[in-house]
Deep mutational scan, measured.
Amino acid sequence: YKPCFVCQDKSSGYHYGVSACEGCKGFFRRSIQKNMIYTCHRDKNCVINKVTRNRCQYCRLQKCFEVGMSKESVRND
């Protein structure tokens, strides 16, 4: 598999339409299922990588959408 499109960590396969790691897969699923609203405490362009991905949930979710993750493919079960 290609590296995670969101944070470049080791991917566990294709999730919600893109190559993603377990961490970003779970983060995206929880964010969508719980209708989470995050805020960025900087200027909405935080670097998201394996080391920084937990620092800003707003920018991490934005990057999930930017790389093509589909909220329609998240099931509500």
Rank of each mutant, 00 (worst) to 15 (best):
Y1F: 12
Y1H: 13
Y1D: 13
Y1M: 13
Y1T: 08
K2A: 05
K2Y: 08
P3A: 13
P3Q: 13
P3M: 07
C4F: 02
C4L: 01
C4K: 00
C4H: 01
F5S: 09
F5G: 08
F5E: 04
F5N: 04
F5Y: 10
V6S: 00
V6P: 01
V6F: 04
V6C: 00
V6D: 01
V6L: 01
C7V: 01
C7Q: 00
C7Y: 03
C7S: 01
C7P: 00
Q8P: 01
Q8C: 09
Q8S: 13
D9K: 02
D9Q: 03
D9M: 04
K10P: 10
K10S: 15
K10M: 13
S11A: 06
S11G: 07
S11H: 03
S11P: 08
S12P: 06
S12C: 15
S12L: 06
S12N: 12
G13L: 04
G13C: 05
Y14D: 15
Y14M: 10
Y14K: 11
H15T: 09
H15Q: 10
H15D: 12
H15P: 05
Y16H: 12
Y16V: 09
Y16W: 07
G17H: 05
G17R: 05
V18M: 06
V18S: 07
V18P: 04
S19M: 11
S19C: 08
S19W: 12
S19V: 14
A20Q: 04
A20N: 03
A20E: 02
A20T: 09
A20V: 09
A20G: 03
A20F: 09
C21I: 00
C21R: 02
C21P: 04
C21Q: 00
C21A: 01
C21V: 01
E22R: 02
E22V: 06
E22F: 05
E22N: 05
E22H: 04
G23M: 06
G23S: 14
G23L: 12
G23H: 08
C24A: 00
C24H: 00
C24Q: 03
C24G: 01
C24E: 01
C24Y: 05
C24L: 03
K25I: 13
K25N: 14
K25F: 14
K25P: 01
G26A: 10
G26R: 04
F27A: 02
F27P: 01
F27Q: 00
F27I: 02
F27E: 01
F28T: 03
F28S: 01
F28K: 00
F28A: 03
F28D: 03
F28L: 03
F28R: 00
R29I: 13
R29F: 11
R29K: 08
R29G: 09
R30N: 00
R30Q: 05
R30D: 15
S31A: 08
I32M: 08
I32Y: 09
I32A: 07
I32H: 01
I32C: 07
Q33T: 07
Q33P: 01
Q33K: 10
K34I: 04
K34G: 13
K34L: 13
K34S: 14
K34N: 13
N35G: 13
N35S: 12
M36S: 11
M36F: 04
M36A: 14
M36L: 12
M36N: 11
M36Y: 04
M36G: 07
I37R: 11
I37P: 08
I37K: 14
Y38P: 06
T39H: 12
T39G: 07
T39L: 13
T39S: 10
C40E: 01
C40A: 00
C40L: 03
H41P: 09
H41E: 14
H41Y: 07
H41S: 08
H41M: 13
H41N: 08
H41V: 10
D43E: 13
D43P: 04
D43C: 04
K44I: 11
N45T: 11
N45Q: 13
C46V: 02
V47N: 08
V47A: 13
V47Q: 12
V47K: 11
I48F: 09
I48W: 02
I48T: 07
I48G: 03
N49P: 04
K50M: 14
K50E: 14
K50V: 15
K50F: 15
V51R: 07
V51N: 10
V51E: 15
V51Q: 13
T52P: 07
T52N: 12
T52L: 12
T52W: 09
R53M: 15
R53G: 11
R53N: 14
R53K: 13
N54R: 12
N54Q: 15
R55W: 14
R55F: 05
R55P: 15
C56E: 02
C56S: 02
C56Q: 01
C56T: 02
C56F: 00
Q57G: 15
Y58T: 03
Y58F: 11
C59S: 05
C59G: 02
C59R: 01
C59M: 02
R60D: 00
L61H: 03
L61K: 00
L61I: 06
L61F: 07
L61Q: 05
L61V: 03
Q62D: 08
Q62Y: 04
Q62V: 12
Q62G: 05
K63M: 09
K63N: 03
K63W: 01
K63C: 03
K63G: 03
K63V: 05
K63P: 01
K63I: 05
C64T: 02
C64G: 02
C64M: 04
F65Y: 11
F65C: 06
E66M: 13
E66H: 07
E66K: 10
E66G: 10
E66R: 11
E66P: 03
V67L: 08
V67W: 03
V67H: 04
G68L: 01
G68Q: 02
G68V: 01
G68M: 02
M69I: 07
M69V: 03
M69C: 05
M69E: 02
M69D: 03
S70E: 12
S70D: 08
S70H: 12
K71W: 07
K71I: 09
K71V: 07
K71Y: 06
K71A: 10
K71T: 13
E72M: 08
E72D: 14
E72G: 07
E72R: 07
S73Y: 06
S73A: 14
S73P: 11
S73F: 10
S73V: 11
V74T: 10
V74R: 06
V74P: 09
V74G: 08
R75M: 15
R75I: 10
R75Y: 14
N76T: 07
N76H: 07
N76A: 13
N76Q: 13
N76C: 08
N76M: 09
N76F: 10
D77S: 08
D77V: 09
D77Q: 13
D77H: 13
D77A: 07
